[in-house]
């Protein structure tokens, strides 16, 4: 009996998760989105292996070369290989996307959980701040923060996190408000559990599904904001190969060398589409009720 009892959690968890994955990947969109994300992730991880040149290797005689043999996506105004720069740029997009969303997820979840669980004056204050943060356009506010902090990759991530946590806070607060009245949470209180245990063991796991979905849908947004800010010169500084920055440098040569801007632009479309399709599929699987 003991062996059985000891193994049971592992077996159960695995069974549940495997079933979930099977269900998720039965969805065509999930397969497609997941594959795109996975391939781009590999591109980011193995960038030094895949890229034929260094991202900052200048070769002035070869500048503004059209796509073809040797430089499959052409070269920019300094003769740098556009393909190599795009491959390295994948790293920037993933880093910024995950870090910025990760930080706002953390801030938003903590504040939302506190507001939803304790209610009262604390909720009033946190909800007020959240609503104010929510009402600002993200890109605009990020520009203000970056302008104040000075343009750099780190500052951009910080700015994006400060700006975009409100969505998570609102979502988690709402989840907690409804969970707080659930009988199993009341039962936990009657059983003498501490607030911390109730929040982390009983409420958070049950609030997580929509949070995961929101996360996958926030990452592509963050990637777009990153590209926009870098395009405006407020994010990654040259020669860092952010897709937005590459597009910006290419805009002066749009007539002579359109490939410099076109290909990073296409990459942004692909990565955002990948995340959005995957996120939508995830939502359909985790919460069938939300399906249109």
């Amino acid at each position: 009996m003991t062996d059985l009892a000891l193994d049971r959690d592992k077996m159960k968890r695995k069974g549940r998760f495997a079933r979930f994955l099977k269900q998720l990947f039965a969805n065509k969109m999930a397969r497609f989105g997941g594959t795109v994300i996975f391939l781009l992730f590999l591109l980011a991880v193995f960038a030094p292996v895949i890229a034929p040149y260094e991202y900052d290797a200048m070769n002035l005689p070869e500048m503004l070369k059209a796509p073809g043999f040797g430089n499959i996506l052409g070269t920019d105004e300094f003769g740098r290989d556009v393909f190599s720069r795009i491959v390295y740029g994948t790293r920037i997009s993933f880093t910024v996307g995950f870090l910025a969303v990760g930080i706002s997820l953390l801030i938003g979840t903590i504040l939302g959980a506190l507001a939803g669980y304790y209610g009262g004056a604390l909720d009033y204050v946190i909800s007020g701040i959240t609503d104010i943060a929510w009402s600002f356009p993200v890109t605009l506010l990020a520009i203000v923060f970056v302008a104040a902090l000075g343009p750099s990759l780190i500052n951009m991530i910080i700015a994006m996190a400060i700006v975009s946590w409100s969505g998570f806070a609102r979502l988690v607060r709402g989840q907690f408000l409804s969970l707080r009245e659930k009988e199993f949470v009341q039962a936990a209180r009657v059983l003498g559990m501490r607030d911390r245990r109730i929040i982390f063991r009983h409420m958070l796991p049950n609030a997580l599904a929509p949070v995961i979905v929101l996360t996958t849908l926030e990452v592509p947004k963050a990637i777009i904001v990153e590209a926009s800010l870098s395009f405006l010169g407020l994010g990654a500084q040259p020669p860092t190969p952010s897709w937005g920055a590459i597009m910006n440098s290419g805009k002066s040569y749009l007539m002579e060398a359109p490939w410099i801007s076109i290909f990073p632009g296409l990459m942004i479309v692909v990565i955002v589409m990948g995340f959005n399709l995957f996120g939508d599929a995830l939502r359909d699987t985790l919460d069938p009720r939300l399906k249109d």
Binding site: K182, E183, F184, Q186, A187, A188, V190, L191, R201, H202, P205, N206
Partner: peptide, 14 residues
């Protein structure tokens, strides 16, 4: 201790 009316809601589903 307390036992609630709705046994479906009284246990943590996870």
């Amino acid at each position: 201790q307390m036992i609630f009316q709705d046994p479906f809601a009284a246990l943590n589903p996870r």
